[in-house]
Design a protein around this nucleic acid. Sequence first.
DNA 1: ATAGAAATAGAAAACGTTTTCTAAAAAGGA
DNA 2: TCCTTTTTAGAAAACGTTTTCTATTTCTAT
Lengths: 333, 333
Amino acid sequence: MKRTTIQDVASAAGVSITTVSRVINNNYPVKASTRKKVEEAVDRLKFKPNLLARSLIQNSTKTVGILTPSIENLFFSEVIKGVDSVLKEKGYTTFLCHTEGEATNEVEMIHSLVDRRVDGMVVLDPRKENVISGYFEELAKRVPLLLVNGYAQGIGCSYVLNDGEGGTRMALKYLISEGCKRIVFLRGKKSHSYDIKEEVYLEFMKAHGMESRILRIKDGNDIKTVEQAKDAVADYIQSGEKPDALLACNDWMAVGALSGAKSEGLIIPKDMRIIGFDNTIISMITEPKLSTVDQQMTKLGQLAGNRIYKMMTTKDIENQKTYLETKLMIRES
Amino acid sequence: MKRTTIQDVASAAGVSITTVSRVINNNYPVKASTRKKVEEAVDRLKFKPNLLARSLIQNSTKTVGILTPSIENLFFSEVIKGVDSVLKEKGYTTFLCHTEGEATNEVEMIHSLVDRRVDGMVVLDPRKENVISGYFEELAKRVPLLLVNGYAQGIGCSYVLNDGEGGTRMALKYLISEGCKRIVFLRGKKSHSYDIKEEVYLEFMKAHGMESRILRIKDGNDIKTVEQAKDAVADYIQSGEKPDALLACNDWMAVGALSGAKSEGLIIPKDMRIIGFDNTIISMITEPKLSTVDQQMTKLGQLAGNRIYKMMTTKDIENQKTYLETKLMIRES
DNA sequence: ATAGAAATAGAAAACGTTTTCTAAAAAGGA
DNA sequence: TCCTTTTTAGAAAACGTTTTCTATTTCTAT
C-alpha cells in the first residue's frame, strides 16, 4: 500500500533519482531520449512527488493561509475570492481557516499554519485582543503576515484597509447636501470598522452643529443582523423620534433598517434616506434599491493577494500600510 | 533569519536531539532533571517542531481537506462547522478549499491536497462530472475520501447523504393532508439533490392522480436565488395559475416564492402553502415564518467528521453509505 | 587523433524530524 | 563484589525530495 516514490520511478526508468527530479522540475538539461524514458515511467507509475519532502528542502510550501472570522458573510467571501484569484495565478495554494470570531481560535490556527510552514498568512478582520496584545506585531517579524481590515489600523505590521473613514464622510456629506438634518447612525457592537465610522460620524455631526444619535445592535451573522436592525429601528421610530436619514455600518443593517422603517409606515426615501455600507449584492435587490458605500471587496482582496505575494517573494517584511478608497453608490434609498 | 531547530535545542540543553524529541513528544522515559533542562531550552529558544519533517517520517499530516462549492451558503457552512468541530476534537486541523462550483477546480484542488498528503478529504456536493467520470471512485482507493450530498449517491465510494427523498415525501404528504391539490415544485438547475427531489415529486403526484408542475430557476448564490425565485413565482401566478401549495428545494427559494406570492396579492398560508428545505436560520425570520424540511446540517457534518476519522484511523476504506433522516418543521407558511 | 569545452548523468549531502537499535549508567540481588 | 536487570541516553538510519559537486560522455576545433 506504499506510495510510489521518486526512487521507484528511477529504477523503472533505469536512471538516477537526480535525473528524475530534473525531468519533473525541468530545471536542468537532460537528453531527449532519457527524458522520454523518465516521463513514461512517471506516467505509468502515476508518480506524484511528495510535496512535504520538497517543501522541507526548499523551505517553502507554496501555500498561504487565510483566516476569516466567518464563512457565511458576503463581505469576507468576496475578499477571499480576490485573494485567492491572484495567489492562484502566482502558483500558490490557499487554505482557509475560520475562527468563528474567537481570538483564541485565531492564535491556535495561526500556530497550526506556522508549524506547517505556510509561506504567508492573510488575516481578515483580526481580533482586537490579538492586536492590542502585540501578538501580530511579534508574529510579523517571523513570517510574512498581512492584516486586512478589522483592528489592523495603527499596528506595527503590514495591513490593507478600506477607507471607512472617507466613505463615512462622503455619505454624510451627501445626506446633508440633500437637506437631511436628523441623521441616525446604526452600528454593531464589536467590529473595529464600526468604531472608526462612529468616530467620524460624531466628529462630523458636531462640526455641522447637528445632534448625533447612535443605534447599537448585537453582532450576529448576516441574517440575524437584519432582524436586530429591523427591531432597533422600528423601536426607535415608535418611541416618537423622527429621523430623516440613517447611515448603517453594513448592508445587512441597512436592509433591516429599511424593513423596520417601512413597518412603521415611513416611505423610503421620501420620509427617510438610508445609506448602507459594502455594496454587497443584497443592496441591489431590496425595494427600493439601497444606496450604499462601495467597499470594493474583490479589489481589496486582490490588493491583499498582491501585497502578501510581494512580502513572500522579496522577503521584505517592512511594514506597509495601504488604504483602498471607497465609492458612494447612490441608488433609490 | 533561520528558524530554530531541534538541533539548536539539543545543543543548548547539552543533550542529543533524540532526547529533545522524546521530551516534546513525551513518548519515552527521560530523567526528570534532563527533561527540565530540555524544556527550558525549548521555551527559551521558542522552539516549534517543523511539522513537515515530522509528517514526512510519520507519514501523516494530521490534516484533512474540506472541499465546498461555495463559502457563501448557509447550508455548507453549517455542515463545515460540524465536520470541523469533531475533527478538531480528535486533534486534526482542517483546511477549507472552495471550488466555485467548478469541476476542474475540484480536481485541481484535490490534487493539491493529495500532493500535500492530507490524511483524508471530505467533499461537499461533489461535481457531477467528476462523479460520473469515475474520478472519485478511483481516488477513493488511494486516500480516505468521503463525499457528502451532491451527486454522491450510488457511486462506489463512501458517502453521507441527507434523506432528501424521505423529506420530500414527508412534505408532500403533509400538504395533501391539508387539502392541497395544485402543488408546484420549485427547483434550481444543477444540484443533484434537486433531481432526486423532483423524481420523488413526480412519482408522488402521479400516484395521487394530481397534475405536476415544475418551476426551474437559474443557480446562483443565496441572494440571487431569492430574486430568481421571486420572479419565477410572480410570473407563474400572473400567468393565471392558481397553485395552492409550493415545495421549494431550499429555504432561499422558499423565501423568494413567499415574496413573489405576496407581491401578487396572495395571503400565505391561506391562499397558498409554502414549504422550504434545509431549516436555515432564514426560515425563522420571514413573515410568516417558513415551514421547512430540517436537513440537520450540523449533525450531517458531525456524521461526516466521524466517518472520515474512522476511515483515516482504521485504514478501512470499505465503502460505507449513510443516510441522515430529515424532519418536517411546520411553522406558519 | 587529441585537447579542451560543453553537455549530460550520478553520488552524496542536505532538509528537520522520528524511531530503532545499541550502549552506558544505575539499581538490584546473590 | 560481581552479575543481571532496568533505566536512561545517544548514534545512526529513515522519510522523499532537491541540490551541489564531481565524473563521465559527447562534441568541436585544431
